[in-house]
Design a protein around this nucleic acid. Structure first.
Length: 280
DNA sequence: CATCAACCCTGAGAGC
DNA sequence: TGCTCTCAGGGTTGAT
């Protein structure tokens, strides 16, 4: 499922021009086809299609797990959720939609942007005001202006289990299940740890771990898991995610899986210990 | 404020 | 072989 690194990888792929395909930047939208109405969150599907026609893609940015396409006027936003993927293909190959194609945008240069989304959870918006969708989003974890002390203060302001907090997009924007598990392991923090019990030293380690796993994910072009292949290979470097029963790469203890905040959570019961149990 | 269940969906994998 | 059943998983919403 696309998290920050996968979304960033897709963004880079769309922007980059190479022998195989042009950049999406500068392309003029010729027509918009919606094959699953619910994919369009705002406005309604036909208004969305009509409004976008004739506009030029000026830039593609990322905010959390959202892709932001800047147009002549306003922005198209796309959230891939669980199973979404976005890619450019020659228009001739997608005049008839593929099995899970939900939205296809045809450009005047003969190329098309395909939004393919098996589970139909993905969403697209057209908005003038970014705040309408981004308003409550939290800090970008890779934003260099976020300091260790600020992060520690943010943790202190909640009394929540750390893993669900990390995944809360109002807290930090972009972290999902995989990178939360991997970051907590690297920082040696237990997923059930209560945020305001985390020490300043742990907070520093955690922020550093979050940035480390996100950057490694981006560097490896994201993780390709389940049946949705995106070309990334970070899945081959997981320390805990989907390694239930396998030995911890640090201490050899079997990795355990349990549910934390309704999410499957993988951790090392030896390396990641609750503060209150330390030294007990 | 924190937690939790339900919902949206599909296909993989298990059980038969 | 092929049917039925269960369930993951991000985010939103509504209840406790």
């Amino acid at each position: 499922m696309p998290e920050l690194p996968e979304v960033e990888t897709i963004r880079c792929n769309l922007m980059r021009a190479d022998e195989d395909k042009p950049s999406i930047i500068g392309q003029v939208i010729e027509s918009v086809r919606v094959y699953w109405e619910k994919t369009i969150q705002e406005p309604d599907a036909s208004s969305f299609a009509q409004t976008l026609a004739g506009m030029t893609i000026k830039a593609v940015q990322r905010r959390g797990k959202f892709l932001q396409f800047d147009l002549d006027e306003g922005h198209m936003l796309i959230h891939l959720r669980m199973s979404g993927d976005l890619y450019l293909v020659p228009k001739a190959t997608c005049l008839d939609p593929g099995t899970h194609d939900r939205l296809i945008i045809h450009f005047s240069n003969g190329w098309s942007l395909v939004f393919n989304d098996t589970r139909k959870f993905g969403r697209a918006w057209y908005v003038q005001d970014l705040q309408k969708v981004f308003g409550k989003l939290g800090t970008e974890p890779l934003d260099e202006t976020l300091t260790d002390v600020q992060f520690f203060t943010m943790l202190q302001s909640y009394k929540r289990q750390i893993k669900p907090l990390l995944m809360d997009q109002h807290f930090l924007a972009g972290i999902g299940n995989i990178y939360a598990d991997e970051a907590l392991f690297l920082a040696q923090v237990h997923p059930n740890e209560i945020s305001n019990n985390i020490t300043q030293t742990q907070a520093q380690a955690l922020l550093s771990a979050i940035r480390s796993v996100l950057e490694e994910g981006i560097q490896r072009n994201g993780a390709s898991i389940d049946w949705v292949y995106r070309g990334g290979e970070f899945q081959n470097y997981f320390n805990v995610y989907q390694r239930t029963g396998e030995p911890c790469k640090v201490c050899g203890t079997a990795i355990e899986k349990k549910f934390v905040g309704q999410r499957g959570t993988h951790y090392c019961p030896n390396c990641q210990v609750l503060t209150k149990n330390k030294g007990a």
